[in-house]
Simulated scan of single mutants.
Amino acid sequence: MDRELFPERVVHPRARIVTGRVSRLNPGYAREIKVGQPVLMAVLAAAGVAQMAALLVKSVLQAGTGRAGTRRRWKQLRKGPEFLVTPLRMRDGDGVLHEVEIHGHLPQSALEPADHIQVTVRRQKDGDLPPRVERIVNLTTGQLLTPRIPTVWSHLGPALVLQAILGLMLVGAVAACTLTR
């Protein structure tokens, strides 16, 4: 049969663990993580309090000779990080072709066509998308592969998160001082 005219049917696996052979790794593409506006506003507000306190201390200690650092804008923070999505097709022992998605980066030589693999998958929020791979055990090479994707917290960055924590501590300390009077 002609594969172009009659493509083989691809199914999304229903089981949590699927064992089979790598049929094809499709080219990857970028997908964006959404950042919730309430989370972003809370973090930026708390970080703003700490930044104002730091600017106040800096203006007292210095004559203002230093220049301000560049900060990412609201639009850049709201956009969210992008991560690599690589569709993977694998054929199980019964000859059924399954499609799953690998989110994040893997070493280039981690999976080769015809490798015997066992994948642990999780359904995505959008039911039309193939399940997302949580873990891959390459039974041919003996490798355990765990793709990692960026999170909202890694996107905001440790400096902004730390600044937000300091801002919350400052607001808490001021509130505690005013309540004890």
Rank of each mutant, 00 (worst) to 15 (best):
A53M: 11
A54K: 09
L55Q: 13
L55I: 02
L56R: 14
L56N: 08
V57N: 00
Q62A: 09
G64D: 08
G64L: 08
T65P: 00
R67E: 15
A68N: 08
G69K: 14
G69I: 10
G69F: 13
T70Q: 11
R71A: 15
R72T: 05
R72W: 08
R73A: 12
W74H: 11
Q76L: 08
L77F: 04
K79E: 14
K79R: 14
L84H: 10
P87H: 06
P87L: 04
L88R: 04
R89T: 09
M90D: 02
D92H: 06
D92Q: 07
D92L: 04
V96S: 07
L97F: 06
H98M: 02
E99Q: 15
V100G: 01
H105T: 11
L106P: 01
L106D: 01
S109M: 07
P113Q: 03
D115M: 02
Q118I: 03
Q118E: 15
V119F: 01
V119A: 04
V119C: 04
R122W: 00
R123A: 11
K125Y: 10
G127F: 05
G127D: 12
D128N: 15
L129S: 06
L129P: 01
P130Q: 04
P130H: 03
P131N: 08
I136F: 02
L139F: 04
T140G: 06
T141C: 00
T141R: 12
Q143K: 13
L144V: 15
L145C: 05
T146P: 00
R148I: 11
I149P: 01
S154F: 07
S154P: 03
H155L: 05
P158I: 13
P158M: 11
L160D: 02
L160I: 05
L162A: 14
L166P: 01
G167Q: 05
G167V: 02
L170R: 05
L170G: 04
G172K: 07
A173T: 12
A173S: 13
A175Q: 09
A175V: 12
L179V: 12
L179M: 10
